[in-house]
Design a binder for these strands. Structure first.
Length: 533
DNA sequence: CTACAGTTGAAGCC
DNA sequence: GGCTTCAACTGTAG
């Protein structure tokens, strides 16, 4: 064979377990490994609320650049290189397919709506030109289409029912390369080297604002190895028992950003975990285990793929229609870590600086913004996370905001995280707060979660006057959470699910259930069951 | 139709 | 650390 093939990188920024790459390199004369830098994703947007582009905060941009540099150097070791272009990805790709006389185009399947639209443009063009397209599923363990089909055409809406539909995922491809086909003639196209963040126009951003997590496949595999070294820890992992206030040594693997960009193959990760499970006596299970975490990812990918308007309330059939508020002042206070609740504010500062916060920390601040305290639309919080998280992933981020706002998946809206006691139970001395909110570093631990309650003399001694050096609480949690709970109950009562408005019959049915609730409360049932025993 | 379970709530009790 | 109460949701399995 002496034709040209292309591997088009978007996510899947790795050499290992990359079926699109493997397919492309087989039987071609020249292999063209391409990545298109999208100015919309990379160029500074001065109007944005944080440093970064219109689409992404600076931490994730840097993570992407790290990943590209690492990919390029890996390709160079194999006698190839990354061909970096700049422009609108779909438009540019169609041009080079033609100009470089590509006969086989390979790229990893990407199930996000934005990507599907982009890829359709390219695939349609390629087909019209007689170019073969190969687009395997390797960003996820399973093909969402298969799961949805198995479930009768609808995505499963509970984790358990999802897991019941899955079997064993396909194994990773285990080929290693000593070399790859050389790159052919790229004509007059200007091939870029991976830019440094400063070259994109972010020159004056100080280094201390950057995330400690660096991108790239090499870093992903190092981090994986380090995480898996302690087999006992892997075998006993239970997500809900993790400590959200741990930051010097996070309670989780922090492999999520590497999975997001495909620096790490989920199949490789899965099979490493299974090897460990097989080598130890007992291990935890889904949903709480590490494999369980990978399956959560699959769950959200599947539901997101099978649900039109998944990232919106309106027009989203699985989303509760709630009359959320839009108080800009409260939103900004939350976003900037100025709510007056140190636990909430410290988390938001860590998010801004590191681009990563613990899962339970995400729960705390998401609950606070939406159903817990501020009653602000989950889409607003979603946007902030989408911008700031290095691991921000369309399906998972939207899925979790639906979850935390009790808009879908989870409906126990009366279970509200306290912005005071939730953090205190993990970190009674407030070391996490002291680190991310240095203004409170000398506040005695008795008051660090509620500095407004400290006597003025104590505030003076700590050099932190509430209302001057640190904000007063924007709402009173006690009353605000009660008010939110009431609004949620009203919201639920007026719409059963999705954009279907409750019929008179539904309302009546609900009412009669309320009337009977006394007789059928779980505690009563438990008592009865005990009595029978 | 009903029973049940649902990754991760808080506070108070022992 | 485990249990109960607080108030009371939903999708799914049967």
């Amino acid at each position: 064979m002496d034709s040209n093939a292309m591997i088009w990188f978007r996510k899947g920024l790795r050499i290992h377990d990359n079926p699109a790459l493997d397919h492309a390199r087989r039987g071609c004369k020249h292999l063209f490994p391409v990545f298109v830098l999208d100015p919309w994703y990379l160029d500074p947007d001065p109007a944005a609320f944080s440093p970064g582009s219109a689409r992404s905060g600076i931490n994730r941009i840097r993570f992407l650049l790290d990943s590209l540099a690492d990919l390029d150097s890996s390709l160079r070791r194999l006698g190839s290189r990354l061909l970096l272009l700049r422009g609108d990805p779909a438009t540019l790709l169609c041009r080079v397919l033609k100009d470089w006389n590509i006969k086989s185009l390979c790229f990893e399947f990407d199930s996000e709506p934005y990507s599907l639209a982009r890829d359709k443009q390219v695939t349609d063009f390629a087909s019209a030109c007689g170019i073969k397209v190969f687009s395997p599923v390797s960003h996820t363990l399973f093909n969402p289409t298969d799961i949805i089909e198995k479930n009768g055409g609808r995505p499963p809406l509970t984790y358990q029912s999802f897991v019941a539909l899955t079997g064993k995922p396909p194994p990773p491809i285990s080929v290693t390369y000593s070399e790859l086909p050389t790159v052919g003639d790229t004509g007059e196209y200007e091939l870029l080297t991976v830019p440094a963040i400063q070259e994109l126009g972010y020159g004056d951003i100080s280094q201390e604002e950057f995330s400690p997590f660096r991108g790239g496949e090499s870093e992903a595999l190092r981090r994986l190895k380090k995480s898996l070294k302690d087999k006992e820890w892997v075998a006993k992992f239970e997500k809900p028992k993790g400590d959200p206030s741990a930051f010097l040594k996070p309670a989780t693997t922090v492999l999520s950003p590497y999975l997001k960009f495909g620096c790490l193959s989920p199949r490789h990760f899965y099979h490493c975990l299974h090897d460990i499970y097989n080598s130890v006596g007992s291990h935890t299970s889904p949903p709480v285990s590490l494999v369980g975490q990978l399956l959560w990812r699959e769950f959200f990918y599947t539901v997101a793929f099978g649900t039109p308007n998944f990232d919106r309330m309106i027009g989203n059939k699985i989303c509760k229609q709630i009359p959320w508020g839009d108080n800009e002042e409260l939103l900004v206070a939350w976003r900037e870590g100025q709510t007056g609740y140190p636990w909430i504010d410290a988390i938001m500062i860590q998010l801004k600086k590191w681009g990563w916060i613990h899962h339970l920390a995400r729960h705390s601040v998401a609950c606070f913004l939406t159903r817990g305290d501020l009653f602000i639309h989950w889409e607003k919080g979603r946007d902030v996370f989408e911008r700031l998280l290095v691991d921000s992933d369309w399906a998972i981020n939207n899925g979790n905001w639906l979850w935390l706002s009790c808009s879908s998946f989870f409906y126990q809206y009366y279970q509200i995280y306290s912005p005071i006691s939730f953090g205190k139970k993990y970190d009674p001395d407030g070391n996490y707060i002291r680190h991310f909110l240095p203004v409170l570093k000398d506040m005695p631990k008795e008051y660090i979660y509620e500095p407004w309650s400290a006597p003025l003399s104590v505030q003076k001694k700590a050099k932190c006057i509430v209302g001057k050096d640190y904000p007063k609480p924007v709402v009173a949690h006690e009353t605000a959470s009660k008010e939110c709970r009431k609004k949620m109950a009203e919201g639920y009562a007026s719409n059963i699910s999705g954009n279907k408005v409750a019929s008179q019959k539904d309302v009546l049915r609900r009412k009669s259930q309320d009337d009977n609730s006394q007789a059928s409360s779980p505690s009563k049932i438990k008592q009865r069951r005990k009595a029978i025993k």
